[in-house]
Amino acid sequence: MHLTEKELEILQIIEQNSRIDFHDLAKMVDVDESEIADTVKKLEDMNVIVCYASIINWAKVDTYHGVTAMIDVKVTPKRGVGFNEVAKRIYRFNEVESVYLMSGAYDLSVVVNGQSMNEVAQFVSEKLSTLDSVISTTTHFMLKKYKHDGTIFEPTNEEDKRIVVSP
């Protein structure tokens, strides 16, 4: 699908801040506010804008004890459907946060969330490895998130250090 330069610009701004005021966004890209609404609606309808989520640093929430694992999965692709069918079987599980088809040493990179290591281990051994096409899995538990989707979690002391008035 071909997007105009303005549409691209709108997408890039929304990707950084999905809660931006349309009135301000319209000023920034120099179009009418109604055009922003139409464009966003169109991009939503076409599933270019898939959803509006937020990035949450769960490590800051005391009552949260969840764990995340990245699992390298080797699979046998099926004739006719390639990797898509097995990917679909995997991403349907609620525990699965993301699934990517990769080049290199393994085929699918699967990110899984669970309440405990045990829960993730169980998911891997009972659900994932038992799938027909899955040949092997390697599970890596995530220890700490520093940066996610372009956002650094801990503020890195990057407040405005400039002098307040300068020529």
Partner: peptide, 28 residues
């Protein structure tokens, strides 16, 4: 002396100032 200097002196000790007076990029 530069007229900007006087404004600097006025603004520098004030709390909660939003400055549009900075002549340099905000990027690091």
């Amino acid at each position: 002396p530069s007229g900007i200097r006087r404004f600097f002196d006025l603004a520098v000790n004030m709390e909660g100032v939003v400055s549009l007076g900075v002549g340099e990029p905000d990027f690091v």
